[in-house]
Amino acid sequence: MDPTEKAIINGLQGGFPLTHRPYRDAGAQLGLSEGEMIEEIGNLLARGQLSRFGPLWNAEALGGAVCLAAMAVPPDRFDEVAELVNAHPEIAHNYQRDHELNMWFVVSTDAPARIDQVIAEIERETGLGVRAMPKTREFFVGFRVEV
């Protein structure tokens, strides 16, 4: 990754200007022209180093709901259970982790009431208990990945 790409990733994880020519204005701060900004961002997107460039929407503020959940899945049933869980379109992410609670997934729905329904469906389909871990408080993170 060259210094220009690093500058864009490190310098632009927020604060993109709400102006008539935002790529020009953001580029001015990073020492890049408007054309370079547009081209470099396009390259980073094409290579998958950026997932997206634009607004990061907050599902909960939009009326949706998100809930982390965990299961202790017997190792010999792991793949079968992963398939049952992932078949639900409301499952946004699912990770295997090294703990007795070895399957961790995020349920994301348009309406808060759907969360409990999806969890109940998964419990019925798998015959396993699901531990819901909704966030009770969110602490501010000023996250910037440094490359």
């Binding site: 994880q13 980073l44 634009g54 607004p55 907050n58």
Partner: peptide
């Protein structure tokens, strides 16, 4: 967009990195 940022419906506007690809 400014209003949505202010109310928190948009967390931020800019580059959204893919940790794995980086």
């Amino acid at each position: 967009l400014g209003q949505l940022l202010e109310t928190g419906a948009i967390r931020r506007i800019g580059a959204i990195p893919n940790h794995y690809a980086l």
